[in-house]
Each structure stands twice: as structure tokens, then as C-alpha cells.
């Protein structure tokens, strides 16, 4: 893998910083976030690795992982991170890039009857729309 100034400071890297308001360089890879994450078992890249990949400019790798969709925005990691990294914010920025720009939608109107039938509260449905669609 080649690392260059372009790959480190590319437009995507800058965009992620702008959307999340977070400087991924703050992370020193202690792994606290991953250790604390309640859904780490379902992720293909672990939370701290998401940050490492971003530090190395490997944006596509993190945009293609399932981790950003598995993250529950539970803020367990953010509350315990010794460097004060807003990792849920970074996850959101990654989702936002896919939703806004690449027309991603993981929760469509057609899915509604399924969840409604189960008695899913509005809070869940609205959250789903907010997190999974544009």
C-alpha cells in the first residue's frame, strides 16, 4: 500500500473532518472504543480500526465496511475515549457521505409495513430513516 500526501490529505479525508468536526489524528489506537462497543461482534472492521484506516487515508475501505451501519450511536465509546474522540460522529460522517452523495438507502418506504406490523415505535422508525436514508 502506498502512502502519499495526497492519500493522507485527500478531499474525502477533509470532507469527513468537515462533516464530523473531528480530527482523527487525536486517536492513539488504545482500542478502548472497540473494547467498549456493544456491537463489535457484528462488525467487519473494529471501531478503532475505522479510525486507523482514516488516519492512513484508506477512506474507501471504511466506506465499504459494514461497521458504519452496525454502529448503534450508543456513545459508549465516546464516553470512555481517553482522547475525547467523537467516534460516533465520525461514523455518522461516513454514513452521511454514502447517503448524501452516493444515493445509498438502506431503509426504504417499502420496509415500513414490516416494522409497523411489529409495533415498532415511531422513535425507532424515524431513527431508521434518519440513519439509513437520505
Amino acid at each position: 500500500m502506498k502512502i502519499t500526501t495526497q492519500s493522507l490529505c485527500g478531499t474525502m479525508v477533509k470532507e469527513i473532518a468537515a462533516i464530523s468536526g473531528e480530527n482523527v489524528a487525536k486517536c492513539y489506537q488504545c482500542g478502548k472504543c472497540t473494547a467498549a462497543c456493544p456491537v463489535n461482534m457484528a462488525m467487519d472492521i473494529l471501531p478503532h480500526q475505522v479510525l486507523r484506516f482514516l488516519q492512513l487515508g484508506l477512506v474507501e475501505a471504511v466506506l465499504n465496511c459494514n461497521t458504519i451501519w452496525i454502529c448503534a450511536s450508543c456513545f459508549t465509546c465516546a464516553g470512555r475515549c481517553p482522547r475525547g474522540v467523537d467516534l460516533p460522529g465520525v461514523m455518522e460522517a461516513l454514513r452521511a457521505i454514502l447517503l448524501r452523495k452516493r444515493g445509498f438507502s438502506r431503509f426504504k418506504a417499502g420496509d415500513m409495513p414490516r416494522v409497523l406490523n411489529k409495533g415498532m415505535p415511531e422513535q425507532g422508525i424515524v431513527s431508521g430513516f434518519r440513519k439509513y436514508t437520505k
Binding site: 500500500m1 502506498k2 502512502i3 502519499t4 489506537q29 480500526q49 484506516f53 492512513l56 484508506l58
Partner: peptide
């Protein structure tokens, strides 16, 4: 090598 990400790296 960047052992944290597990990638061998090359830098010019």
C-alpha cells in the same frame, strides 16, 4: 509496515 492496520506500506 503499519502493524496497527496490518498493512505493509510504501512511502516515497
Amino acid at each position: 509496515v503499519d502493524s496497527l492496520s496490518g498493512h505493509a506500506v510504501e512511502i516515497e
